[in-house]
Write a protein that binds this DNA or RNA. Structure first.
Lengths: 209, 209
DNA sequence: AAGTAATTGTGATATATGTTACTTAATTGA
DNA sequence: TCAATTAAGTAACATATATCACAATTACTT
């Protein structure tokens, strides 16, 4: 079953031999929504491949303020984990299951070898880096150039995309935490977006037009 | 001479054979302070290795607002260029010489081969990615969690570090552009930092205590 | 030395966001 | 069904940053 999922999600990017090796040596793990998959300062000795679900990558400062940086989706890997493993540093981010999710943990040792002798793996990793770089730039753009109302709207659209639905189930407090602002500010700006007919508000849900 | 510099800056990270191959196939280029080395939307077919000087990596939005993301220093490469080359996308950042700088441009073709058969190159690239990721996270932290006065002070300290001097030569307008704020705000906050004895102001220069 | 340009200082005011306090509405659970 | 809890709405005020206008200072040019 793991092998099926693995094939389905990674056949485009990884070659056959590698996939069967991964399904042999990787460890399958399942997480529930809101489970912490990787926490800040955690020591890592594996690279996760996301089979199903979505994962939030979150940054936190010393005062406990949080910021959502980007999402991982099925078929993705966490390049942060890779840099941690290679540099034997601790995790600088938190990975939280946005939905129930399943993934394969690959021990680092194997990964080093593949890097040496498997081109599909090399390309996969390089491409992952490229995607994450772009996402980080997007995050920087939002923070540097956009006002909170724009950031909020972008957040909602992105969330609708990830959840594959127009009506997302979320409360204002959670949005505030992801955007590192306050619940009151979010409520106010959501009301404004509703008045502009960009969204429709309900309790515990928001419909993105 | 290029080979000397190359050796000096990269002997720790790249193996002997590779360095001599680079000095053969790479193209030496010199830039003056404020020269644009890579511009946004430019198509790239080389990877730069920085031999001397410092380079600002800058992001710009559609309205022309800018933000300094990080610096490259001697011994660094531009991972953004790498992702551009591999993905054959256009540059998403601008690289500007902070001082007179010199670098070696490596044609992508060679690089691909090295990635396949040279471990020191692979490690160099992976390590570069790690460093840049950390710098991007730092940039995100500054934007998400810090007020402008803190960002400004951090900027000044960093600038002093890069320039290897306590007294940096810069005008308020330039700082404002790097931080994506206005000159007036910068002047005001600089005055505040001076009152707190963290810096000393002069015309065209700031001494970081 | 005088005039011009560049740089910096600063008050006044506008806007965006943060904070506090409280109300209203929906949901849950005994 | 009613009390308790959670979520959302909103007014009032505080603060950070942006913007405008102009003065003061320093450097540069002729």
């Amino acid at each position: 079953m793991n092998t099926n999922l693995l094939n389905q999600k990674f056949a485009h990017t990884l070659d056959e031999d590698l996939i069967s090796e991964i399904s042999e040596k990787g460890i399958f793990k399942a997480f529930k929504k809101d489970d912490i998959i990787i926490d800040i300062n955690q020591t890592l000795n594996f690279i996760p491949l996301l089979l199903t679900g979505d994962i939030k990558i979150i940054r936190e400062d010393t005062d406990g303020n949080e910021l959502l940086i980007y999402f991982l989706e099925a078929g993705d890997t966490c390049t942060m984990s890779l840099t941690c493993c290679l540099g034997t540093t601790k995790s600088k981010i938190r990975a939280v299951a946005e939905k129930d999710s399943s993934l394969i943990m690959i021990p680092v040792q194997n990964m080093q070898t593949w890097f040496h002798n498997n081109e599909s793996w090399r390309n996969f990793i390089l491409q992952s880096y490229q995607i994450r770089f772009d996402e980080m730039l997007e995050a920087i753009d939002s923070l540097a150039f956009m006002k909170m109302d724009e950031r909020l709207y972008k957040y909602l659209k992105n969330m609708a995309m990830v959840d594959e639905t127009k009506t997302i189930s979320i409360k204002h407090q959670d949005i505030a935490e992801d955007l590192n602002t306050s619940r009151v500010v979010v409520s106010r700006l959501l009301k404004k977006l509703e008045n502009e007919n960009k969204i429709k508000l309900g309790r515990n849900k928001i419909e993105v037009a």
